[in-house]
């Protein structure tokens, strides 16, 4: 494994001009994903996690745009490619799995037709070879009797099976990076566990990197190697999943972890973070979390903390800065 990360996001800023002024949905986000690694991106609604994913594959709807920063895939910039160049990267090098499997499949084409089309767009295969490739993919994602079912239409599959088809589509051209945006949110827990298994197994077998976007800390804990916690368009904390889940350093991550009821231990009351995430129109100056933070002091209200690296993790909090200073 080389030292260059497969995906490198540097100070990414995504902005939307509106009548009320420019809104910054993603504000200076940086992270790396290595080959074969699963990076979880977690946060509450409006934290900018999906927007970060969309920015990486160039799917931001105008008038939104990447205002500054870089996205490097395998050392090469992909944030400034033309539409046609980007189309070749999307699907071929970067696969995408969306939340709702019904809307990501075309209802008018059979599963086989959609897979064959995707395969042939990216790989130099004949119709027949592409069909065999598609069948192998469906087998791999665990669709029972794939040979018989591949000529069915999406509506003939259940939710979990449809999501498997979507994963097969994302993997069709053997991408190096898969971005999965809430892949299990629309599914029941028992099906969710199966889909997580498929995603994990396929990526480790193929050595693909995965960016897993979800609001569910449990899914991250099961799946990811490292996790980035986002708040108000910024990365609050990033590090190995075990460290972040069990010894969170950022007050927001600590609150987030405490607010999740768990199966393992009893607590009469859940930790609650007062208030809610600020709207994009009124993000406070300094640290975006300061009005809700129990430890906030003057500096937090004035200066914005940048991520402070200690070992494998980085925490954007002035408290962590003090710790390092001492």
């Amino acid at each position: 494994m080389t030292d260059t990360p497969l995906l490198s996001v540097r100070d990414l800023v995504v902005q939307f001009p509106t009548r009320k002024g420019v809104l910054t949905a993603v504000d200076g986000v940086s992270f790396d994903i290595k080959r074969g690694e699963v990076l979880g991106v977690v946060g509450e609604s409006g934290a900018g996690k999906s927007m970060t994913g969309a920015a990486i594959i160039g799917l931001i709807e105008p008038p939104g745009r990447i205002a500054s920063g870089q996205v490097l895939l395998d050392g090469e910039r992909i944030d400034n490619l033309s539409v046609s160049q980007m189309r070749r990267v999307r699907g071929k090098k970067v696969g995408m799995v969306f939340q709702d499997p019904l809307t990501s499949l075309n209802p008018l084409y059979t599963v086989a037709q959609q897979l064959v089309e995707t395969v042939r767009t990216h790989l130099p295969l004949s119709e027949k070879q592409a069909r065999e490739h598609a069948l192998a993919l469906l087998d791999e994602v665990g669709i029972p009797a794939a040979k018989r079912r591949m000529d069915d239409y999406p509506h003939q599959f259940s939710g979990g099976m449809r999501q498997r088809v979507v994963i097969a589509l994302a993997l069709a051209a053997e991408p190096e990076l898969v971005i999965a945006d809430e892949p299990t949110t629309a599914l029941d827990v028992s099906v969710q566990a199966q889909i997580i298994d498929v995603l994990k197994r396929l990526c480790s077998e193929r050595g693909a990197a995965v960016m897993l976007i979800t609001h569910d800390m449990g899914v991250i804990a099961e799946t990811a190697d490292r996790v980035a916690v986002m708040y108000a368009g910024r990365v609050a904390e990033i590090g190995p999943v075990r460290d972040v889940v069990q010894h969170a350093k950022h007050p927001y991550t600590q609150g987030l972890m405490g607010s999740i009821p768990t199966l393992a231990h009893d607590s009469d009351r859940l930790v609650q973070i007062h208030g809610s995430m600020p709207r994009l129109t009124d993000i406070p100056p300094g640290c975006a979390f300061n009005p809700r933070c129990a430890h906030a002091f003057d500096r937090c209200r004035q200066d914005r903390p940048s991520p402070i690296q200690t070992g494998e993790r980085a925490v954007a909090c002035w408290l962590a800065d003090q710790e390092v200073g001492q």
């Binding site: 028992s190 566990a193 999740i260 768990t262």
Partner: peptide
């Protein structure tokens, strides 16, 4: 038991779990 096993494990105890099979 199957439902409980399917719940993602936040404490990462690495408990043994039975593989969930099939759908409703």
């Amino acid at each position: 038991s199957m439902l409980l096993d399917a719940v993602p494990d936040l404490d990462m105890t690495g408990r043994a779990r039975t593989q969930v099979v099939g759908e409703i």
